[in-house]
Simulated scan of single mutants.
Amino acid sequence: MTVAVLALQGAFIEHEQVLNHLGVEHIELRQASDLKKTFDALILPGGESTVQSLLLHEQNMFEPLKKRIEDGMPVLATCAGLILLASEIEGQETSHFATLPVKVRRNAYGRQLGSFHTESEVKGIGKVPMTFIRAPYVSETSPDVEVLAVVDNKIVGVRYNSQFAYAFHPELDDNTQIHELFLRSISAKS
């Protein structure tokens, strides 16, 4: 199994470190030619969703990746990655990939000073540490979206088919269970 990590901007190195720790082969996606490499799954890291989307378009990677996601490629999205996948973004007329039928609120906890750390339940795992940095949350879901995590009555983790999306940064904590759950879902699919 090879996991591709979107490496245009954001916390991609931290995801790669988790994959290294777990012994999972991975590649970086930086330009359109990288899409010719073979990979089985995709990680969309935290960072700046607007910048990532702009760079995806500039590098001619947006449409090919969107098609792969629509065709069922497993995706793990964290923070900005959740915003990239969401079909609706509160206060915006447009969205990005729009493959995940949820509405998100950007910077829902305020700016950098509103960042926080907590521990909470994730369905199928148990309690995990959660680091929120200028994080979004899911304000609405379609009925076929499975809610995986809730903090302070706000949805912060969801699954839709083979798309896993979290409002927090599991790659910034030592706990690897979020990545392991994602990797198990890929193995179960193949």
Results as ranks from 00 to 15, higher is better:
Val104Glu: 04
Met61Lys: 04
Glu119Phe: 12
Pro101Ile: 04
Glu63Asp: 14
Thr78Tyr: 07
Pro64Met: 04
Ala98Arg: 03
Ser95Asn: 13
Phe97Arg: 00
Phe62Cys: 02
Leu100Pro: 12
Gly114Cys: 07
Pro74Gln: 11
Ser120Pro: 11
Pro74Trp: 10
Leu100Tyr: 12
Phe62Lys: 01
Leu113Trp: 10
Arg68Glu: 09
Glu93Met: 06
Ser95His: 12
Glu90Phe: 00
Phe62Thr: 00
Leu82Glu: 01
Arg106Phe: 13
Tyr109Met: 00
Glu121Ile: 13
Glu119Ala: 11
Ser87Tyr: 07
Glu70Thr: 06
Val75His: 00
Ala108Lys: 02
Arg105Ser: 09
Met61Phe: 14
Gly72Met: 06
His96Ala: 12
Tyr109Lys: 03
Asp71Asn: 15
Arg68Thr: 13
Ser115Ala: 13
Ile69Thr: 14
Cys79Met: 02
Ser120Thr: 15
Ala98Met: 02
Ala80His: 08
Gly81Asn: 09
Ser120Ala: 15
Phe62Leu: 08
Leu100Ser: 05
Asp71Pro: 08
Gln92Val: 11
Leu113Thr: 14
Phe97Met: 01
Met61Cys: 12
Glu70His: 01
Met61Glu: 04
Gln112Thr: 09
Arg105Pro: 00
Glu70Ser: 11
Thr118Cys: 14
Ala77Ile: 02
Gln92Arg: 15
Ser120Cys: 13
Phe116Ser: 01
His96Val: 02
Glu121Ala: 12
Asn107Phe: 11
Thr99Phe: 01
Ser87Lys: 14
Ile69Phe: 04
Ala98Leu: 04
Ile83Arg: 08
Ala108Phe: 12
Val122Ala: 09
Gln92Asp: 08
Met73Leu: 15
Thr94Ala: 10
Glu119Ile: 07
Gly81Lys: 03
Arg111Lys: 14
Val104Trp: 14
Ile69Leu: 08
Glu93Gln: 13
Thr78Cys: 03
Glu63Thr: 14
Gln92Asn: 09
Leu82Gln: 04
Thr78Ala: 05
Ser95Gln: 03
Lys103Gln: 12
Glu93Leu: 10
His117Met: 15
Phe116Pro: 11
Gly72Ile: 03
Gln59Trp: 14
Leu84Ser: 07
Phe116Val: 07
Ala77Val: 02
Met73Trp: 01
Ile69Ser: 10
Leu100His: 09
Ile89Asp: 01
Ala80Gln: 06
Thr94Pro: 02
Asn60Trp: 03
Leu84Thr: 02
Gln92His: 11
Arg106Lys: 12
Glu90Gly: 08
Pro101Ala: 05
Ala98Trp: 04
Ala80Leu: 06
Glu119Pro: 01
Glu121Phe: 15
Thr78Asn: 05
Leu65Asn: 06
Gly114Tyr: 02
Thr118Ala: 09
Gly110Asp: 09
